[in-house]
């Protein structure tokens, strides 16, 4: 069976049923290991002290909020170029999850900033561009809810998502392009991480746990969206049967 065969929603739902329990198991194990390492094996930072432990959730949340938008952007290309039946479902389902990760990144960063920087918030390029990302997520969620027709909503949202993707390199390189209070990259660098392995490893394990959590939630949300479109299609069919002539624009993508 080719990868593209999973574009069929029924096959996709069967795949989700098989994969989801394994993903949930690995996710729980990764969180258990990551949290143990974060609190019991990782040392205090020589400057930050124990507040470095906030980094074990702040940094993965920040990575995931960008990864989630990248998934939405790829899905949007699938919607506009290939009209892939699951592409729009994927983009729509990822938006609330991305918004939640962005919210986590902003609030945990703020809670780290108060003891370390002396302020909860500063309008520097990194923080402001991540706030713009949160607004983009909320705007896209609103756009999907304002249109009844999921096909039209999906196309409009796909265009807006791709326009918003311009913000991703701004977030990533804001600490290099502008003089910001936020520190520059210390893990994903051309010359390798600048963090001591004792702190780096718990961070990477937590990043794996957050990534698995994203995939678990995304698959569950996609399954729900497919079911929602089936309900909508069946209700439209029932309405067209009870009122002949109102006809049947019932076929939905990912129905």
């Amino acid at each position: 069976m080719a990868f593209w065969d999973y574009a069929n929603p029924t096959r996709f739902l069967r795949l989700v049923q098989v994969v989801l329990p394994w993903l949930i198991g690995f996710c729980v194990l990764a969180f258990a290991a990551g949290l143990y390492m974060a609190f019991f094996t990782a040392p205090e930072d020589y400057q930050q002290g124990n507040t470095v432990r906030i980094m074990y959730i702040h940094v993965p949340a920040a990575w995931l909020c960008m990864m989630c938008y990248t998934v939405m952007s790829i899905s949007s290309i699938g919607t506009l170029v290939w009209k892939h039946p699951l592409a729009d479902v994927s983009a729509k389902s990822a938006a609330p999850i991305g918004a939640a990760f962005t919210f986590m990144a902003l609030v945990t960063g703020s809670l780290w900033g108060k003891p370390m920087w002396g302020t909860y918030w500063v309008w520097d390029a990194r923080l402001t561009s991540v706030l713009v990302l949160l607004i983009m997520y909320l705007g896209l969620m609103t756009l999907w809810r304002t249109m009844d027709d999921p096909i039209k909503a999906g196309k409009s949202a796909a265009i807006l998502t791709l326009v918003g993707a311009l913000n991703l390199p701004i977030i990533k390189f804001s600490v290099d392009w502008w003089n910001t209070l936020h520190q520059p990259a210390s893990v994903v660098r051309m010359d390798g991480p600048t963090i001591h392995p004792d702190i780096l490893w718990p961070l990477l394990v937590m990043a794996v746990a957050f990534t698995l959590l994203f995939f678990v939630l995304h698959l569950m949300a996609m399954r729900n969206e497919i079911l929602r479109r089936r309900v909508r299609a069946l209700r439209m069919r029932a309405a067209s049967v009870s009122r002949p002539g109102t006809a049947a624009a019932t076929a939905q993508p990912a129905e």
Binding site: G49, T51, I57, A61, M104, T108, L111, W112, K114, P115
Partner: peptide, 14 residues
């Protein structure tokens, strides 16, 4: 340590 409140609040929120 002294910043326990910030750490606990961060994890609780997540």
């Amino acid at each position: 340590g002294t910043h326990a409140g910030f750490i606990i609040a961060s994890y609780a929120l997540c």
